[in-house]
Amino acid sequence: MAAGGDHGSPDSYRSPLASRYASPEMCFVFSDRYKFRTWRQLWLWLAEAEQTLGLPITDEQIQEMKSNLENIDFKMAAEEEKRLRHDVMAHVHTFGHCCPKAAGIIHLGATSCYVGDNTDLIILRNALDLLLPKLARVISRLADFAKERASLPTLGFTHFQPAQLTTVGKRCCLWIQDLCMDLQNLKRVRDDLRFRGVKGTTGTQASFLQLFEGDDHKVEQLDKMVTEKAGFKRAFIITGQTYTRKVDIEVLSVLASLGASVHKICTDIRLLANLKEMEEPFEKQQIGSSAMPYKRNPMRSERCCSLARHLMTLVMDPLQTASVQWFERTLDDSANRRICLAEAFLTADTILNTLQNISEGLVVYPKVIERRIRQELPFMATENIIMAMVKAGGSRQDCHEKIRVLSQQAASVVKQEGGDNDLIERIQVDAYFSPIHSQLDHLLDPSSFTGRASQQVQRFLEEEVYPLLKPYESVMKVKAELCL
């Protein structure tokens, strides 16, 4: 049975990233139509530049190519590739079939990587351009969430054990800070992308030097003109047959890092959902379990974690691919890159769409948070109580021993009897502590235990987050809708 299948058929496997999760716009960027249309555009740009620099290419040939950029006979191309065992030459023939007058000058002087690699770089750039505003929107939604809850005390956790208090907004800023680093890295790697350009079979530009009869300047002009037509500021000066596969490492490393950030955020949300302090959106008709109707599973956060793990592992592909590119190139890269580049971007696209949807509907339960604080705060307040007693004339050592005994009794009630923490009640009825009984409410005010959390939130948002989001103001209103 021949390899390949009808990918629109229910009898043929289709990647869930495309069929179930990723956005239509990201799927289109990695589609065959987008790819092969870009090949034709690159052939047109090459012909236009070659004509401008004096090669015998007519206006009629150029116009014929322009008129057929979208006229792609995919069936013919597939048949040609089956016959020739070469995808680029299959599309040269297919393009030439609908451009008979231009057929002889299509791909003039070029090698397969002229269309293959340059198209990949265009796709990487455009895919990054799709991700950047999506990530900015996630940051914006979380920034709104953090600002609104900047002063809401909550129990902090280290080692997932109760620690000092923080605020809900401050905790959210930990998430935002990681995503801001990801946004900066995505922008950097996007701006650092260079075009492969017009380089020939081993990167020496020998074929173009021959076409222009040894004119170095025209060869350099050709490279520059096509690079500018493709919208790049610069091209690699040095290439082998391909652009260095280190570029793929750079791009997928940034995406993998984004995956790590999203995994951490969504894990926190899942843990908070278990504590009943916070939940992701839950639709009115949504079913959490087929057997347990009360369940409210954090399905979206779980999906993000599941896909983020996949995204983090994909960076190993370009690392290994770059390491086995012998001399000017081997074909070890080809099949692998067809999979890992598309999957990385479709996965990143999915987790950003999902995280935006989550961040637009996060639900906080202040009463649950308050109750958990009441359970733990008495123990945390013991040092403040000791200091207040010393100020009232008591002995630190005597007070410490009193607190120690009462704390152990209260802990026994919590752990052995399943009761509430009654340390404060014990202190309130103990005559030894009568000098500070009137101060206990103040000493137990949760806001006095959150330090500068709310001020940190305000400063972080104003100095770091809002300036970073400013270039994306025009796209901030787009909502994230999930079908599944």
Score class of each variant (00 low, 15 high):
Ser112Lys: 00
Leu406Asp: 05
Ala230Thr: 04
Ser334His: 07
Glu360Leu: 11
Pro281Met: 10
Leu121Pro: 03
Ile139His: 04
Asp223Ala: 06
Thr239Tyr: 02
Ile369Tyr: 02
Ile269Asp: 01
Ile287Met: 06
Gln408Phe: 09
Gln408Met: 06
Ile62Asp: 00
Thr119Trp: 02
His400Asp: 02
Arg40Gly: 00
Ala322Met: 13
Gly288Ser: 07
Glu25Ala: 13
Leu258Ile: 06
Glu48Thr: 08
Glu463Phe: 12
Val475Asn: 15
Thr267Ala: 11
Leu443Val: 15
Leu211Asp: 06
Lys134Leu: 14
Ile339Asn: 10
Asp216Gly: 14
Gln177Ala: 11
Gly259Val: 02
Ala411Asn: 11
Lys35Cys: 11
Phe236Glu: 01
Ile339Ser: 12
Lys187Phe: 08
Lys199His: 02
Asp182Arg: 04
Val315Lys: 05
Asp6Arg: 11
Val475Asp: 10
Leu362Gln: 02
Val262Glu: 00
Ala90Arg: 02
Glu277Val: 01
Lys470Ser: 14
Lys402Cys: 00
Ser257His: 02
Arg329Leu: 04
Arg190Thr: 11
Asn297Trp: 02
Arg296Leu: 07
Lys367Asp: 07
Pro378Leu: 05
Gln41Arg: 13
Glu148Val: 11
Thr154Asn: 02
Glu228Leu: 12
Gln458Trp: 11
Ser334Ala: 04
Leu255Met: 13
Ala90Tyr: 04
Thr202Arg: 02
Leu423Lys: 03
Thr111Met: 06
Ile369Arg: 05
Val219Asp: 07
Gln164Ser: 10
Ile351Asp: 03
Thr354Val: 15
Glu80Phe: 06
Asp430Trp: 05
Glu277Gln: 06
Phe345Asp: 04
Gln41Cys: 12
Thr347Val: 08
Asp441Lys: 11
Val324Met: 10
Met299Gly: 06
Lys367Thr: 04
Thr382Met: 15
Gln285Thr: 13
Met476Trp: 14
Cys98Glu: 12
Lys66Ala: 10
Gln63Thr: 11
Gly109Ala: 06
Leu406Pro: 01
Lys170Glu: 01
Ala163Ser: 12
Ser257Asp: 05
Ala453Lys: 03
His263Asn: 15
Ser306Gly: 07
Arg33Pro: 10
Trp45Leu: 06
Ala136Cys: 15
Val29Leu: 14
Leu331Val: 08
Asp182Glu: 04
Leu55Tyr: 07
Glu370Tyr: 11
Ala410Gln: 04
Gly4Cys: 15
Pro293Phe: 02
Asp178Arg: 03
Val189Gly: 12
Asp445Lys: 14
Asp349Pro: 02
Met299Pro: 11
Pro100Asn: 11
Arg371Glu: 01
Lys134Ile: 08
Ser454Ile: 09
Glu213Asn: 15
Gln458Pro: 09
Gly4Thr: 15
His400Ala: 01
Glu148Asn: 09
Arg459Asp: 09
